[in-house]
Design a protein around this nucleic acid. Structure first.
Length: 226
DNA sequence: GCGACAG
DNA sequence: ATCTTGTCGC
């Protein structure tokens, strides 16, 4: 799919952070109730500056794989907490260009607005892709929360200590494992982000879109998945 | 200065 | 994320 360029990616850390603060005003944090027939999972794996991005599109709510793709490219921007998008974003866009089936919702491996400047990878990419997005991270970056209940579906709100604003939720997607951190990206609200996360879990800690995309980024894995 | 810190 | 083997537990 084609996207309209919003800005350069090769920005020094300070400028990258300033850009994130500017982009925050463009986020739409409401759900306008579009029909959901497909949902995509996006993940990136990098080893020795060799990045591999995988996108898997599943039907919803059946969760059958409709298409998948993997692309590789050199990645040089360093990993800096809070600036993950500047490392993985360019590669994700390259993969997105190869996509022929436009998903209704896109799930990312990382934060949405649960980020120091409200612009985690799911929020940022949502602006580029102009699609509803949500972030499902394996660990916390920003925000505080009370302990999470042990049952599937139990959750604790993630809130920003200073403002008191609720920015996401720590969700138990599988008993006996650590919760995942869910937050809306763009054109999304928290209730729907949580609902989509739980509705796409199939017995594993990670929801299917991300679990499958992650598998494809691992060395030796083959695609397509169907 | 110290601790925190998505992937 | 990646580096890495075995191992504890259901």
């Amino acid at each position: 799919m084609r996207v309209r360029p919003l800005h350069d990616w090769d920005l020094p850390p300070e400028e990258a952070a300033a850009l994130q603060r500017e982009l925050r005003a463009q986020l739409i944090l409401t759900w306008d109730d579009p029909p959901i027939r497909t949902i995509a999972g996006v993940d990136v794996g990098i080893r020795e500056e060799r990045g591999r991005c995988a996108i898997v599109v599943l039907s919803y709510p059946a969760l059958e794989v409709l298409s998948s793709l993997v692309i590789e490219e050199r990645v040089t921007y360093p990993y800096i907490p809070g600036l993950l998008t500047f490392r993985e974003g360019p590669l994700i866009l390259k993969a997105w260009e190869r996509l022929t089936l436009l998903p209704d919702v896109v799930m990312f491996d990382g934060q949405g607005i649960a980020h120091p400047r409200g612009m985690g990878i799911a929020a940022h990419m949502g602006l580029w892709l102009e699609k509803p997005t949500l972030g499902v991270a394996k660990s916390r970056l920003w925000g505080e929360h009370a302990p999470v209940g042990e049952a599937l579906g139990d959750l604790s709100w993630l809130y920003e200590k200073e403002s008191g604003a609720t920015i996401g939720a720590a969700v138990r997607t599988r008993p006996g494992t650590r919760p995942v951190y869910v937050s809306p990206g763009h054109r999304m609200d928290l209730p729907h982000a949580i609902e989509l996360t739980l509705a796409t879990c199939r017995g594993y800690r990670l929801p299917e879109p991300l679990r499958l995309a992650h598998r494809l980024t691992q060395p030796g894995e083959q695609f397509p998945l169907f």
